[in-house]
Design a protein around this nucleic acid. Structure first.
Lengths: 142, 142
DNA sequence: TTTTTTTACTTGCATATTGAAAGTGATTAT
DNA sequence: ATAATCACTTTCAATATGCAAGTAAAAAAA
């Protein structure tokens, strides 16, 4: 399920084989910002992902060990998606992409509280957010 | 040509609107590793990009100010592609993606000289490679 | 307890993108 | 003068995307 579908043994190329599309990293972004999300939560994001694409990407991210699906406490219908350590590990890349967009795309607000905090102290911010996501207290939801 | 085709005002989403596919960042990678490339050079990379996709991506990267096309000295047919400062600015993201792949994808060599040097001192490595690409000495070709 | 709503998907279908292969026209090398 | 190189373009089949509607089970409301 791995090297057969890889275009080369370059780590960048192989990474893009997994998340090189317009949607996968947005799911990771939502889980970075909110820690856990249900299927419905994802559909409410600003980019309006189609439900068939969402289902497809959640499955592939799970297959690749980037997210896990947990049971929503006290509900047999809902699922709860979270980042695995492998998924949390994507955050530095995500942050660099966000910084690039803030700096280099016109019409993008470079001064959002989020980007401002990142730029104030990147290392500290990364540690804080990654540590927060890595401790999986299944009780606190959001 | 900008905000109309953006899915939201999120810097990550808007960045992916530009380079969120399996090929664009590989072109940037080649220009990071080699400083300048011709059309034919790109087709020789391990991932074997189709020429129609290559032409399309070079055009869109140029439209978005990430690469520039220069004249190949002493040749009226060849072109020379290079990263603009905006393109060089993508390197931190590219490096994080490479590090993620090296660490998290099986069958990928995590101990290549390139990744080893990055990990030894990321800041230093970034500065070195970005500075090198930013000084555009149009004479030295590689 | 019946009805309605919520939730997480799946299905169908039109459109867009990708990929492989072959073609083109202008240099450039022989 | 001829052949080879180079940078694309074109064609067409295969795949992916996007939208809208449908479904089945559980949960909440009446």
């Amino acid at each position: 399920m791995k090297s057969a579908e890889m275009r080369s043994d370059c780590p960048i190329s192989s990474s893009l084989d997994i998340f090189g599309d317009k949607w996968s990293l947005l799911i990771v972004r939502d889980l970075m910002l909110h820690k856990s999300r249900t299927y419905g939560d994802f559909t409410k994001s600003a980019e309006k992902i189609a439900t068939n694409i969402l289902a497809n990407r959640l499955q592939m991210l799970e297959n690749n060990g980037i997210i896990i699906k947990l049971l929503y406490p006290g509900n047999k219908v809902k699922g709860l998606y979270r980042l695995t350590p492998k998924g949390v590990d994507l955050i530095p890349a995500l942050i660099e992409i966000a910084l690039w967009g803030g700096k280099n795309i016109s019409n993008i607000d470079d001064g959002s509280p989020f980007l401002k905090e990142v730029k104030k102290n990147k290392t500290k911010f990364l540690k804080k957010i990654m540590d927060g996501l890595l401790q999986e207290d299944k009780t606190n939801i959001d």
